[in-house]
């Protein structure tokens, strides 16, 4: 999980990542706005991310977000076109957070959580 280098958050726990990506809270734990980014639909990266995070695949996540969106609770993460696109948005937005594969990590962003951590 990566954020902008200017973001005050240093690390996140798995529970805090779930809170943001499942629409429970609209902010980081310090109260700053959080704008989660989602990789393209039907990509293995997106599917794997949600399987590891909450043991749900993309189908279940879509139904989950239909419930939250149309009950008026929250809007789903903003969809981006690619990992590159996610990294570009992270660089220009202090509020964005994204999941990317470790192989595409650059020095331009800050790692706050690794999915293989507990």
């Amino acid at each position: 999980m990566v954020v902008n280098k200017e973001n005050d958050i240093k690390t996140l726990s798995k529970r805090e990542v779930i809170d943001i990506y499942m629409g429970r809270y609209l902010t980081f734990p310090n109260g700053a706005n959080a704008q989660p980014l989602d990789l393209p639909a039907q990509s293995s990266l997106k599917n794997d991310f949600y399987l590891k995070l909450v043991n749900q695949d993309e189908r279940k996540i879509n139904a989950y977000w239909a419930r939250l969106l149309f009950s008026g609770r929250a809007k789903p993460p903003e969809a981006v076109e690619s990992v590159d696109d996610a990294l570009k948005k992270i660089k220009i937005s202090e509020f964005s957070i994204a999941y990317i594969p470790e192989s595409e990590l650059t020095d331009a962003v800050k790692v706050v959580y690794r999915l293989n951590e507990n």
């Binding site: 809270y25 609209l26 879509n62 139904a63 239909a66 149309f70 008026g72």
Partner: peptide, 27 residues
């Protein structure tokens, strides 16, 4: 982060599905 207040026409969350009974995709 913890509080929210809504005013206007709001939905009830009495039952598990009562916030989105019309959204067939969701259940």
């Amino acid at each position: 982060r913890n509080w929210s207040v809504r005013g206007g026409r709001i939905n009830s969350d009495m039952y598990l599905l009562s916030e989105y009974p019309s959204v067939g995709y969701a259940y």
